[in-house]
Design a protein around this nucleic acid. Structure first.
Lengths: 352, 352
DNA sequence: CTCCTGTAGCTATTCGAGAGAGTAGGCCCG
DNA sequence: CGGGCCTACTCTCTCGAATAGCTACAGGAG
C-alpha cells in the first residue's frame, strides 16, 4: 500500500508537506507545490492510513453501537438514523449485538475499549450492569439509549415511556373500554415497567381498578405476546381492548386474535408502542405510540460529541416526548398507508 | 491511557515481555515473570491498544458491511448473523447504510479503504458500480451478498432468486389460479429481474401466457407495492393471486387487499419472497420463499477469510437454495406461529 | 550592506505495539 | 576450564502519519 513517503518522494517534497496538503491544515503551501502533491497522490492512488492517524492523534473517529438485537425493527431503525448522523459528522459506526446477554455486552465493551472508540452508544440489555460499569470506568464518552440502568454513571436518552403507556390506555378508555389488558415486557427492564405503570395510572384515573388477570409480563417477542394474549382471550372474562407494550408484541396480539376468531377492532381494540414501522401496513392499521427514533439518534450523537469535547461534564438525561398515532386498530376510522402517517417508513428501492 | 511501557516498568521487565504475555505467543516466559506481568496489567487496568497493533501488523480485524438500508428487515437479520459470526472469529463489524444511493456507497467504500478494513461485505444498491469497482481496485477482500453486479470482479454469495420466483408461482398455479400477478422490484436490480423471470417461467410451463397487465415493477418498498397492487386489483380483469417479490411488498399487498375489500386467501392468494420475519405473524400467515439468511452470512464470512489468507484466488460465486414455506395466504391451511415455522425469529427479551 | 519579517518547506520526535536480532547467565560435557 | 547450547530476557527498529520547531530564502526598510 502506498504511503505518505512515496507521495513525498514523487512530488519532491517532504512528508510534512504532504500532510499539510492532505489535511488542508492551517499551514500554507504554495499553490504550485500543492498541485504537485495532489498530482502525485492521484497518480499513486494514495489513501491516507487512518490507523496511523488515529495512533498519532489519539482519536479514531469511531462510535460503537451496542444493541440487544439489530434484527428488532426499532433498533434497526435507530441504527440507521445513528449511522447517518454519525457519518455526517465524520464518524464511522461499529455494530455489536448483545443478544440480550449481559456477558456478551461486556465482551463487546472490552473490544471497543481496546479499539479506542471515541464514543459508545448502548441500548442496555437491562439484565446486568457489568458492561455499563466497564464503560463508565473507561472514561470513554457514552450514552445509554432507549433503556436506562439505575445507578450507572452515564448519560441517557430515552422516551417518556410512562406517558406513552398512559396515552395509549387513555385512548382505549375513551372508546368506552373498561377491560383493558396489558401485554407487558420483562419487569426487570425499566421501560417495560414504565409502560405498564402508565397503563395502570390511566385506569386508576378513569376509576377502573386494574385487574391483575389482565396483565402479562414476558419477553418483548412476538411469540411470547402471542401466547400471553391467547391466555387472556381464553380466560373467563377476556379483555375487550389490549395495550401492547411494543409493536413486536402487537404482531403477536393480532395473530392471537385471529386464532380465537376475534376481529380487530370490533371484538378487540389494540393500541401499541411503536418500535416497528410495520404499523400502518397491518390490517387494520395499528394505532400506536410513536417514538421519535430520529431525534433519539440525533440527541445521542450530540451528547456523545459534547462529552468528547468536555470529558468532565456531568452525565445528562434526556427524555423525549412520544405521541399517539391513530389508525384503525383502536376503533377509530382507519387511514391509508400513503396518507402521511408512515413517517418512519421511507421510499426508495430496498429489501432482499 | 496506560500503555505497554507502563506495565513493563511496573513489572520490572522489558516491553517485549509484556507483549509476549499479552499475546500468548510462541516465546516462553517464566511462570513467575508472567505472573508479575499479569498482576501489573490488572493493577494498572492496562488495555492493549489495537490501533497501534493494527498499524504494526497491518491487519485491523475489521469487516465492513454496506447495505442499502439496515432498517429493512432482511438486511437487519443479515447484519445480525454476520456480526455474530464475525465476532466469533475475532472480527468487529463496521456498518454503513448506502440508502440506495451509489454515491453514498462509494463514499463509504472510500472511508473503509482508508480505515484499512480487512474485508468488505456489500449488498450493492444495484444502481451503480463505482463503489464496487473501487473495492475491487483496492484489493481488499470482498464479497457481494444478496445482489450481484454483472462485470464486477468480486466474489458473490446470493440465493437462487429465479428458482424462488418459480416455486412461489408454481404453488399458486397448483391452487388452480391462472391470473397470477407479479409485484416486482426494480428491473435494474438483478435479483428483482430474476424473481420475475421465475414467475414468468412457471406460468409458461403451466401453459399460461404471462399477462403484462399483471406485472408491476417498482421499488421494493411497502408503499410502492401497495399502490401497484391497488392498480392491479382495480383493473378490469384483476388477478386472483399475487406473487410479491419481497415480504416488504407483501405488506403492501395485504393492505391493498384490505382497502378494496378482498379477503386473503379467498379472494386473493399471496405468496412472497422472504426478507422479513414478520411472515408468520400476519393474518393469515404469509406463505413465502425462505432465504437462508444465516447461511448467507456464514458463507460470506468464510469467503472473506479465504480471500484474506489467499489474496490471489479467483473470485467465487455461491448460489444458495431457497425453499417454500407454506402458511395460510396461498389457500393452504394456516399454521400457528409457535408451530416451528418461525425459524428466523428468536426468543428472548428485546425491542424498544 | 545589514537587519528584519514573513513565507514555504524540512527535520525530528512521537503515538503504542510487534518482532527480529542480540545477550546474560546457567548448565552440561568432554 | 572452556566451548556449546538453552532459557529468558532486552534492544532497537518499524509501521504511517501529525506536528512542534527549525531553517532557507526573498524582499523591503534603513
Amino acid at each position: 500500500m502506498v504511503s505518505r513517503d512515496d507521495v513525498a518522494r514523487r512530488a519532491g517534497v517532504s512528508t510534512a508537506v504532504v500532510s499539510y496538503v492532505v489535511n488542508n491544515g492551517p499551514r500554507r503551501v504554495a499553490p504550485a507545490t500543492r498541485e504537485r502533491v495532489l498530482r502525485a497522490i492521484a497518480e499513486l492512488g494514495y489513501r491516507p492510513n487512518s490507523v496511523a492517524r488515529s495512533l498519532r492523534t489519539n482519536r479514531t473517529r469511531t462510535i460503537a453501537l451496542i444493541v440487544p438485537d439489530i434484527a428488532d425493527s426499532f433498533f434497526a431503525q435507530f441504527a440507521r438514523e445513528l449511522q447517518t448522523r454519525a457519518h455526517d459528522r465524520g464518524f464511522t459506526v461499529l455494530l455489536a449485538n448483545a443478544m440480550d446477554d449481559p456477558a456478551s455486552e461486556l465482551d463487546h465493551v472490552k473490544v471497543f475499549i481496546e479499539r479506542r472508540v471515541d464514543g459508545i452508544v448502548v441500548a442496555p440489555t437491562g439484565l446486568g450492569r457489568q458492561g455499563l460499569d466497564e464503560i463508565a470506568d473507561s472514561r470513554i464518552a457514552s450514552v445509554m439509549v432507549d433503556r436506562e440502568m439505575p445507578g450507572v454513571r452515564s448519560s441517557s436518552v430515552i422516551v417518556d415511556n410512562h406517558h406513552g403507556g398512559y396515552l395509549a390506555t387513555r385512548h382505549l378508555l375513551e372508546h368506552g373500554h373498561t377491560r383493558v389488558g396489558c401485554i407487558g415486557g420483562p419487569l426487570e427492564i425499566t421501560i417495560a415497567a414504565d409502560r405498564s405503570r402508565g397503563w395502570r395510572q390511566a385506569l386508576l384515573e378513569a376509576g377502573v381498578e386494574p385487574d391483575p388477570l389482565l396483565e402479562t409480563h414476558s419477553s418483548f417477542s412476538r411469540l411470547a405476546a402471542y401466547r400471553g394474549t391467547l391466555r387472556l382471550l381464553r380466560a373467563r372474562r377476556p379483555p375487550t381492548a389490549i395495550f401492547a407494550c411494543a409493536d413486536e408484541q402487537a404482531l403477536g396480539v393480532y395473530r392471537a386474535a385471529a386464532t380465537v376468531g376475534a376481529r380487530i377492532p370490533d371484538d378487540l381494540a389494540v393500541v401499541s408502542f411503536d418500535s416497528a414501522s410495520t404499523a400502518p401496513y397491518l390490517t387494520p392499521g395499528l394505532t400506536s405510540i410513536r417514538q421519535p427514533v430520529a431525534q433519539l439518534a440525533e440527541r445521542a450523537v450530540c451528547r456523545l460529541i459534547d462529552q468528547m469535547e468536555h470529558p468532565d461534564r456531568a452525565p445528562t438525561r434526556d427524555c423525549l416526548p412520544v405521541e399517539l398515532v391513530v389508525r384503525g386498530s383502536c376503533g377509530c376510522p382507519d387511514t391509508e398507508p400513503d396518507s402521511g402517517s408512515h413517517t418512519t417508513s421511507k421510499p426508495g428501492p430496498t429489501s432482499g
